[in-house]
Nucleic acid binder design. Sequence first.
DNA 1: TCCAAACATTAGAAAATTATAATGTTATAA
DNA 2: TTATAACATTATAATTTTCTAATGTTTGGA
Lengths: 99, 99
Amino acid sequence: MNNREREMTAEVLKAMAHPVRLGVIELLAEGEKTCTELFENLECSQSMMSQQLKILCQQGLVAIRKEGTQKYCALQNPDFLKLFDCMHKHLRTFLHFKD
Amino acid sequence: MNNREREMTAEVLKAMAHPVRLGVIELLAEGEKTCTELFENLECSQSMMSQQLKILCQQGLVAIRKEGTQKYCALQNPDFLKLFDCMHKHLRTFLHFKD
DNA sequence: TCCAAACATTAGAAAATTATAATGTTATAA
DNA sequence: TTATAACATTATAATTTTCTAATGTTTGGA
């Protein structure tokens, strides 16, 4: 990796590195969800969710489809889903989620 | 993932999400390096490197072994190396490193 | 046309991160 | 024992992130 690649990679990792945004990715792995479904499930404010979704979209992780007054969010890229699955699998062994 | 797990995961991702720290991980994937080798290769100040290494150690990503006046850094956990390889592989297809 | 639901934007305070400069510590070699 | 190489710590300024509260926009239904 050259420095530019490391910077781009860091940006994507930063976009993932937040509890709410991780929750969004996790929920979207199940399939499309509306913004309301997301913030209700993840117990955060509507405003918070809107801002976090913006970050995920800007990094190309999430795509949004409009339908009437609602917006449906989905994971943008199947490669990213593979990345996330892989990451999640290894993190479970790396972090021993105990207590 | 529950919320606690998402917070722990976010912490690890944050620890990775920095160009210098990604560079450290990349170099250490080749094998042990001293702190000086790291900051010389990555073109950052000694102080900067010391601080970034502290972050990587705190998250359990890097281990440090002392030998005389030098310190040898290495990746702490083989599971993490697998995680990083996997992540890197998928990121290369996800981010199309072009410019 | 008017209201409400769904979502976005803005403003601003608090906290965290980043980076640099200066200084401190420790161990070895001379 | 003194100087130096290797590394750590501290202080601090600048920037970024996080979060909440308030307000704005758009769309569909009554």
